[in-house]
Design a protein around this nucleic acid. Structure first.
Length: 439
RNA sequence: GGGGGCGUGGUGUAGUGGUCAAACAUGCGGCCCUGUCAAGGCCGAGACCGCGGGUUCAAAUCCCGUCGCUCCCGCCA
């Protein structure tokens, strides 16, 4: 029999239906049994009169909560039932998969175990509607991003994640055995994005895994995460990238808002708003002035850079001054940026680069890239790199590479910002950290 | 990698030198009551207080080490 979703039961009064879902609660009484069934669309009460089928009653008594069930019965309107005034009179029950008793923890309890313990039993934690919503939002968010890219002539690429040479610094790379030699997991698709520019793709994006061997124990770091990257040719400066990015992000927010606004409000207490464009922009020099005015003291060794506290302070500042959750911080010193960021023609100590902060959290780094072979080589040397290992990359700039720029964004960090999540471990399907390889 | 905090039944907590062979909530088992619906009532099982060492007449409680978790910093998305 065709499955009926719980949300559609109200249209099936006096009909026989089949529900498929989990046993949320069992109230096993003397003459009656009540099974609360949950599917993705809601909860429904199933009633069973024990004397009508004593054998079935016995089976029901053995069920553990969270068992996976198929239930068939007649839908009746009954105003006594507090759950929507509807119940199913049980006729048939198939136990698809009984749940052992006791559960490692009850996902629907008022008090939840520590998050680390819940990560051990991630699939149970994900049964909570709130957690499923995060990934429904993520799906819609990515769809909104893709819509916008596709409408603007972007091509999707999938770059390799196994690399033969440590590309940038090499400090945070995972080594893997590769037959009889060593390979590395990609810590960024950066070089391959730029290869597509040299290839004449003009505009490309990639959503894919990124690996960082950072032993970071914070609420916003992972050793494997999903990177959202795009790169575009024929730009005049990093400003072109920022303009595209803010409109792209606003579109993605709009799509999410249209589909999930009320659910997000209900589960996260966030009244989601589509961000106003353009986002405020602060040069690093301006950011320093603002921090000074706020009496925020940066550690002296952070010269030219921002620490997380400074980022939070700037986030507060733009919220107050501009009512914006987002702010671009631009024109970072070359000393704190990678060698391939383009320098400002009128001030070669600064780069044509930007970070995007969302509610004071760094979610994006972007820049115009240096596309002149000789200049790029010199910048690499200035950073103390040897050219030989990156020669394949440098070659992209020898035979007609257009000016270009782009950015990289952390998908889970964006979700943290969007849904006000306290830790990235909630924003990712399965968390990977220095001490977490399971599940 | 550096610094702080925490580690008590399945889970969440209380207890910070003796009155703790450890309490409460929830969950679990049994019984009672009941068309239940945040169900209620009674009874019961379940923790050598992360692990190892030390101080003390006495340690869940203090000290040292160790492991785990967590937060902040560094690093970044």
């Amino acid at each position: 029999m065709e499955r009926t979703l719980i949300k559609d039961l109200k249209d099936k009064i006096d009909q026989q239906v089949t529900l498929k879902g989990w046993l949320q609660a069992l109230r096993d009484q003397k003459s009656m049994q009540f099974l609360i069934i949950r599917d993705k669309t809601g909860l429904a009460q199933v009633a069973h009169w024990k004397k009508g089928n004593p054998l079935l009653a016995e089976l029901i008594s053995t069920l553990g909560t969270e068992s996976a069930l198929t239930v068939t019965g007649k839908v009746v309107a009954n105003e006594v039932v507090k759950l929507g005034g509807i119940e199913i009179q049980l006729e048939e029950l198939v136990v698809e998969n009984n749940a052992e008793v006791p559960l490692p923890f009850d996902p629907f309890s008022d008090t939840l175990p520590d998050q680390d313990y819940r990560l051990d039993w991630r699939y149970l934690d994900l049964r909570r509607e709130r957690n499923r919503l995060i990934f429904e939002v993520q799906t819609t968010l990515e769809q909104g991003m893709r819509d916008y890219w596709l409408a603007n002539d972007f091509t999707e690429v999938h770059s390799p994640k196994i690399m033969g040479t440590p590309s940038e610094s090499g400090a945070e790379l995972f080594k893997v055995e590769y037959f009889d030699r060593t390979a590395y997991l990609a810590q960024s698709p950066q070089f391959y994005k730029q290869m597509a520019q040299a290839a004449g793709f003009e505009r490309i994006f990639e959503i894919g895994p990124v690996f960082r061997a950072d032993p970071s124990f914070t609420s916003r770091h992972m050793t494997e995460f999903t990177g959202i990257d795009f790169e575009m040719s024929w730009i005049d400066s990093h400003e072109d990238v920022m303009v595209f990015a803010e409109n792209w992000l606003a579109h993605a927010y709009k799509v999410v808002n249209e589909k999930h606004h009320d659910a997000i409000q209900e589960h996260f207490g966030v009244d989601l708003q589509v961000p106003q464009t353009p986002f405020p922009r602060l040069t690093m020099a301006e950011a320093y002035q603002i921090l000074k005015g706020m009496d925020y003291k940066l550690p002296p060794e952070k010269k030219g850079d921002l620490d997380p506290g400074a980022e939070r302070a700037l986030g507060d500042y733009v919220k107050q001054e501009y009512g914006s959750d987002f702010v671009y911080v631009t024109d970072w010193p070359f000393t704190v940026r990678p060698f391939y960021h383009m320098l400002h023609p009128d001030n070669p100590t600064l780069t044509r680069s930007f970070d995007l902060l969302g509610k004071g959290l760094e979610i994006t780094t972007g820049a115009q890239r240096e596309h002149h072979y000789e200049v790029l080589k010199q910048q690499a040397l200035d950073k103390g790199l040897t050219l030989e290992p990156i020669q394949t990359y440098l070659n992209y700039f020898r035979y007609g590479c257009p000016p270009h720029g782009g950015l990289g964004m952390g998908l889970s960090r964006l979700l943290m910002v969007m849904l006000d999540l306290p830790t990235i471990r909630e924003a990712v399907y399965v968390f990977r950290g220095p001490n977490r390889l399971e599940p």
